[in-house]
């Protein structure tokens, strides 16, 4: 009797584990294991979309709970980072604070990694992603993007002794990038002969460049410009690569109420030049003269 009971219990446990495993496609499992950008670009088929039991909270539910949950970077200064007092700071956080204030709720920030931003929305772990999230067609198939609040292009920083002034010069060479970023997608698609050395953390990527483990590093142009200013012997040889991309808040697909609220908020904030104020407060101290606010900031969701 005891043996039968144990056998049944074990079978049920294993069944539950197997079901959990089956719920996610092998493509997703693979991307999760590497925690790379494939997780973001993989397109879920319609069947899987329908089977998603994780429903995002509506605007009313957020108001009722008195708290909005926003996914931000906790390690990408000056967009989203944690200061020495343990408080979230940065351009994205500045906007997140305002969203919460105008909604009349508290804000809870959840630290996210670049490669799992989509997953946090799909599984309704957060209400909004404000993590320097570049709008791409692949991502737009899985999440809903609001109006943009920033524009950005890629840049390449390299040692002045062997300055890279065109992406073609990187063919056969090693380029350092961060996983799950636009730079990874761009070089994979457009320059397959460039060897990519990928890191999870931005600091690891920059340290690898300092250690000479790669010939150059590519990420957002503002990032590389700011870094080159602080590090002697390095220059940005390519300051605008590819198309000008926009950065926007994202919500779970179909969460129209919340999306509309964010869009209205972005439009109304244009009147007070909110994002220019955010730039002055959070980005200007880092970028100084290296960047022009108008080349970065988008007001009212209108890209000029």
């Amino acid at each position: 009797m005891k043996k039968k009971l144990l056998t049944t219990l074990l079978a049920l446990t294993l069944g539950a584990v197997a079901l959990t495993g089956c719920a996610n496609s092998s493509k997703e499992t693979q991307s999760s294991s590497t925690a790379e950008s494939t997780q973001e670009t993989a397109t879920n088929d319609a069947k899987e979309e329908d089977s998603n039991k994780a429903t995002a909270r509506t605007l009313d539910e957020i108001k009722e709970s008195g708290k909005i949950v926003i996914g931000v970077f906790s390690d990408k200064k000056p967009f989203g980072y944690v200061d020495s007092n343990g408080d979230f700071q940065g351009y994205d956080v500045y906007f997140g604070n305002r969203l919460a204030k105008d909604l009349g709720v508290e804000v809870e920030y959840v630290p996210v990694e670049a490669a799992s931003r989509v997953e946090y929305l799909v599984s309704a772990k957060v209400d909004i992603i404000l993590a320097n999230f570049t709008v791409t067609d692949e991502r737009a198939e899985q999440v809903d993007f609001a109006l943009p609040y920033m524009k950005v292009a890629l840049g390449i920083v390299s040692p002045e002794s062997a300055l890279i002034t065109a992406p073609e010069q990187l063919n056969g060479k090693t380029l350092i990038i961060s996983k799950g970023t636009t730079a990874e997608t761009y070089f994979t698609e457009n320059y397959p002969d460039v060897k990519l050395l990928k890191f999870d953390q931005y600091s690891e990527a920059y340290n690898a460049l300092l250690d000479g483990r790669g010939d150059a590093l590519s990420t957002d142009n503002t990032e590389v410009l700011a870094w080159a200013l602080e590090n002697e012997g390095y220059s940005v040889g390519v300051d605008s690569l590819g198309s000008i991309d926009t950065i926007a808040p994202a919500v779970q697909k179909g969460n129209k109420e919340l999306l509309d609220f964010i869009n209205e908020e972005i439009k109304s904030l244009a009147g007070e030049q909110f994002f220019h104020a955010a730039y002055e407060e959070t980005l200007a101290p880092v970028y100084g003269e290296a960047a022009d606010p108008d080349s970065l900031v988008v007001e009212g969701g209108i890209v000029e």
Binding site: A23, N24, S33, S51, N52, K53, S116, V122
Partner: peptide
């Protein structure tokens, strides 16, 4: 790998069964 299990439990359970 433990990382895959972490993703399955953290994200997968929510998507499959709504267990957050």
């Amino acid at each position: 790998p433990q990382l895959v299990l972490l993703f399955l439990v953290y994200f997968g359970l929510t998507k499959a069964f709504g267990i957050n």
